[in-house]
Design a protein around this nucleic acid. Structure first.
Lengths: 239, 239
DNA sequence: AAAAAACTATTGTACTACTATTGATTTAAC
DNA sequence: GTTAAATCAATAGTAGTACAATAGTTTTTT
């Protein structure tokens, strides 16, 4: 949806309402205000409100019927793999639990993607993995620079190399998960280069066309992040 | 979106246009007709057209800007985990290749979900797995009855028992994949009961709280389906 | 030739009017 | 008095008109 300032009215309202719903301000019992009330609340036309409602309905958050108004759907039917929905969830206080679930998904997807990349990946796609690895190493050597961007590029390029469109489509999901991850890992800058080398090992396995090795190395990578979270969860339980 | 007859105008148009886009009738070069042209084509008001356009935009299929009209977005940004988008893809001739990618996702997700269910699953959720297994066995004994429904319930209940909302959300995806799968497996009815028993083994592992066993048994289950597809793909290549 | 201005096609927003759906209420029938 | 039918009313659905904002395209100016 680009920058907030560039959004048109209905998109801005979609954002507002989306956040409010995910944050629980409107729920299944309360529902949403009627279109007329929303017009008053935002001081805009019904046209714009309705378009926002339609967009939220398309993402599974709400549904609307005559006489009955606008309902909030059960969270189970929200489209969690929609980038907007995901971001709204995170903005409303991402619990450690959600973060752990993120990592469980990554742990399911990424090792498999790495194995497929090793098995079927086209050479040019694998070359892109090498590129992102290179910028990772460079970032690790440069002070005051974060690995985030190149780290993401690395993981994304593996999803692409897997040749599976459904895996590649999760790049936004992974990006979001990675972003939240980083907030929790409080990076000791010295470790950046060792992180980069762990990633290099995955790349080497893919280049050498060793699916099972690539799979297990990628698993280890994510499991380490998982351990950090588990320790935090543990600490919170004891407090 | 319920039955087609019950849909309102903008939803029906959303369906029509969505199918057409996914089928390639409109693409990135051509774009879509302008709102005015769509009004003429469908003989309906601009209001309804615009609402349909907004819904498709919310699913990542298109974007629209003044003076420029309605663009088709790159397939990479379509929300593939949206039930509608998925169905439109399948209706427009599901290639074996897509089916294989489906199974690769299942192969990533479901074994992991089974392991989590064995590790963390609540007893009442595991009881639901048992229920669906029971109706699977019953269906296997009954002639002229398909396993499909109970098979799906089995896999869904494991996703639920994993306790991970992102896994559970993939139930529609799995459902769709399973549906397509079944069209290709031309089931020898005699094998239904053996299929049911393979599923039973997964359940037993979960009940016994053996994550790794549950994982590998689930993997095997899906890999068998994968082999069927691979053979078909092979046959097609030779033809 | 480059920059500025004017033009134009298309979506964005607002408003009004009417229709359709459906839950709630009242009335009628037994 | 209970049930069924008819009526009512609230809300979203659809249509149409008008104008604003945006952003390519063309023309004019320098």
């Amino acid at each position: 949806m680009a920058r907030l300032e560039n959004l048109n009215l209905s998109q801005r309202v979609t954002n507002e309402l989306g956040k409010a719903i995910v944050a629980g301000k409107y729920n299944m019992e309360t529902g949403l205000p009627t279109e007329a009330q929303l017009c008053d609340m935002y001081g805009i036309s019904r046209t714009a409100i309705r378009e926002a409602v339609k967009m939220l309905a398309a993402k599974g958050l709400i549904s609307s019927r005559p006489r009955q108004g606008i309902r909030v759907e059960a969270a189970a039917s929200w489209n969690l793999y929609d980038t907007n929905v995901l971001n709204w969830m995170l903005q409303s206080g991402p619990s450690l639990q959600v973060l752990k679930e993120f990592l469980q998904v990554r742990l399911a997807i990424e090792p498999q993607a790495a194995a497929l990349a090793a098995q079927y990946g086209k050479d040019e796609d694998i070359a892109k993995i090498a590129e992102s690895l290179e910028s990772m190493r460079k970032a690790a050597r440069t002070p005051n620079q974060t690995l985030h961007e190149s780290d993401l590029a690395f993981h994304t390029s593996i999803l692409l190399a897997s040749g599976n469109r459904f895996f590649f489509h999760l790049r936004d999901f992974i990006n979001t998960a990675l972003g939240v991850s980083i907030q929790h890992t409080t990076p000791a800058k010295g470790s950046d280069s060792s992180v980069a080398e762990e990633h290099a090992a995955v790349y080497d396995a893919i280049l050498a066309r060793q699916p099972e090795l690539a799979r297990s190395l990628m698993s280890r990578l994510i499991e380490e992040a998982m351990q950090v979270i588990d320790r935090e969860l543990q600490a919170k339980l004891e407090a």
